[in-house]
Amino acid sequence: MKYSEAVQHKKESLKKAHESILNGYHIVIVPADTDESAKYIEDFLKSPEKFNDESCKKYSSNDEYEVVSFKKEDE
């Protein structure tokens, strides 16, 4: 999906998500390409506070995105 569609999908996901999901998982927009997505998530996990939704654009070569969730690491 295009970036604007991914933003809307993320907003809807956040509205519907249970509080335990919001507290225990990252919900992020990532490049649709698997390798680009893996690199983005790897970098994101190093410093999540440095990333925002638009950060994924730098990692995408084809302007296609998806919304994913993954468990937050215990701090």
Rank of each mutant, 00 (worst) to 15 (best):
D43K: 10
S4F: 10
D74T: 11
S60P: 05
A6L: 07
I29D: 02
H9Q: 15
A6M: 09
I21K: 12
A32N: 08
D43S: 04
A38K: 10
L22E: 03
Y59M: 06
L22M: 09
E42K: 14
F44P: 00
K10E: 00
S61F: 01
K10W: 02
E64H: 13
E5Q: 14
K50C: 08
D63C: 08
K46C: 03
K16G: 07
A32S: 08
L45E: 13
K16C: 09
N62M: 03
K10H: 00
A17Y: 08
K39Y: 07
I41M: 12
F51Y: 15
S4L: 10
N23K: 15
E54S: 10
D33Q: 11
N23Q: 15
F70C: 03
S60E: 07
M1H: 12
K11A: 14
D43G: 03
E75L: 14
V67Q: 10
P31H: 03
Y25T: 02
K10Q: 05
E64G: 02
N52A: 07
T34D: 12
V7W: 03
A6V: 05
A32D: 11
D43M: 11
V28Y: 04
D35I: 04
G24K: 07
G24S: 14
E75K: 15
E19S: 10
E5C: 04
N23W: 07
H18L: 08
Y40L: 02
D74V: 13
Y65H: 00
S37W: 04
A38M: 10
S60G: 07
S47I: 11
H9L: 15
N52T: 13
V68P: 04
S60A: 15
